[in-house]
Design a protein around this nucleic acid. Sequence first.
RNA 1: UGGGGCGUCGUCAAGUGGCAAGACACAGGGUUUUGGUCCCUGCAUUCGGAGGUUCGAAUCCUCCCGCCCCAGCCA
Length: 564
Amino acid sequence: MKEPVSSSNFIRDIIDEDLASGKHTSVMTRFPPEPNGYLHIGHAKSICLNFGLARDYGGACNLRFDDTNPTKEEVEYVESIKEDVRWLGFDWEDREYFASDYFESLYQFAVHLIKDGKAYVDSLSADEIRAYRGTLTEAGRNSPYRDRSVEENLDLFERMRAGEFPDGAHVLRAKIDMASPNMSLRDPTIYRIRKVAHHRTGDRWCIYPMYDFAHGLSDSIEGVTHSICTLEFENNRALYDWFLDNLPVTSRPRQYEFARLNISYTVLSKRKLLKLVEEKIVDGWDDPRMPTLSGIRRRGYTAEAIRNFCDRIGVAKRDSVVDVALLEYSIREDLNDRAPRFMGVLNPLRVVIENYPDGQQEELEALNHPTDESFGKRSIPFGKVIYIERDDFREDPPKKFFRLAPGREVRLRYAYFITCTDVVKDPATGEIVELRCTYDPETRGGNAPDGRKVKSTLHWVAADHAVDAEVRLYDRLFTAPDPEAAGDGDFRVCLNPQSLQTLSACKLEPALGRIESTTAVQFERMGYFCLDAHDSRPEHLVFNRTATLRDPWAKIDRQLKKGR
RNA sequence: UGGGGCGUCGUCAAGUGGCAAGACACAGGGUUUUGGUCCCUGCAUUCGGAGGUUCGAAUCCUCCCGCCCCAGCCA
């Protein structure tokens, strides 16, 4: 497996300079998720970046939950996030932190600001604060409470903590500049009253710090050197720096911003994903069509493929949309090397081999991997009646269709050459219900002693030994490259009605019935599949299609149909 | 008509004054018991635009154009 070397990017350049100049002697990063939802592939980019930097520079990366808003956060999210990061292959060892671990220190920092006359308790309502803030082009006005004395501020803030005031009665604000062209510097709120239990601190606190206040200070407390976040926080950097510059911190982290991941034909925002779940457009956060790490995992994607994908997309500052084809390429590349091959017929067409002796059965030898001998071999039963893929037969084959047709000879993989002699149809509907063929006993194993060639090789399953299974064919969830823009805000207009196609009468070779793990296998010529972790049972197998194989014929077929 | 960012192939993305990496996609060809894999080949005389500096500019300067972010007691 070729692990692409992480190409250089502006953050690595910065770290190289910092190390060379002696500004830092080691690198400390952190992945700081808010436990208010499931992680998706966009988070994977951040995880790979932060943990990857720590790994490559011999530093460390902390896992820190940014849990400063108890109204939105829950322990179950903490657990799923840990599971996802671990699955992706990263280890934070004993460095599992929570912003809530620092609440007391953060409170003391706030007191320090008040004592320095750099923070004040404001008693304006939320609406009033908004009105006083001004607009993008007009300066804001000072709150009438802005000049309260240090003593009064200290007293009020203490009583806020003590729970003497209801939610919204007061707020602690940094005293910076109401006329700043940077909105985040117009006396930002740093503490608000929230009389709700916190998933970790319970009811110990009723005032909670805001992100801007807590984040940089948490970074400092942890000795983070490079605090990496996404572009929308660029404006907040000035505030990040202000807190660190105005408080007695012992370490001085720097914030750097990179562009978040966008992928064509998919949505990647917690809000949109939540909507898909709530409106039951998908079957939960781990629906295999979801770009969540749990969905992707259930779909059969490997952590290795995701990591390679993240290495390939790079890290930069410009807004961009990565082609979903690159993601698909990444999983195919990985699975091509590691997935053992089997044969499974998704849409069965019964074939009777007329000259094959009645009642005869035999075992044929097959390779578990075409190029890697270490996968070994297996034997597959063969008999007089088999199933082939319906798409592999055309009564009236178009040009370039190499598969089976009346009078045509093809190879059954690892078995024999067969020739189609007759087509049996349902007299009522005209539907093809069975094919009659003859086989050449001399071609056992798939080669003709006389050297004659066939133009195609088909996969097949012996009817007597076939294992029944349900197979779920997944496709992209949206039909538009940019679902957000397509529906003018309503992405439901471009939902792909074919994103899930359930096939219930699939016929698989016996070995597939003995599979136990949910790691992906290849159904030859059809794609990569894995057992569904939730719904598959020994008595009712359910396979998910992870990815199709590259399929030039599908493209030709589409063009032929269009041309007609 | 406030501030902060960003503009290099269809899509990502290197490049940091010396004459446009790589990947995906796409198009050809070869090998092949998966129309898979693999292997070749092609694919930006040009870097948002216009000027300027220089022997030399994607890289420096000027002006212009376009896109993204900010007015939560969210993160």
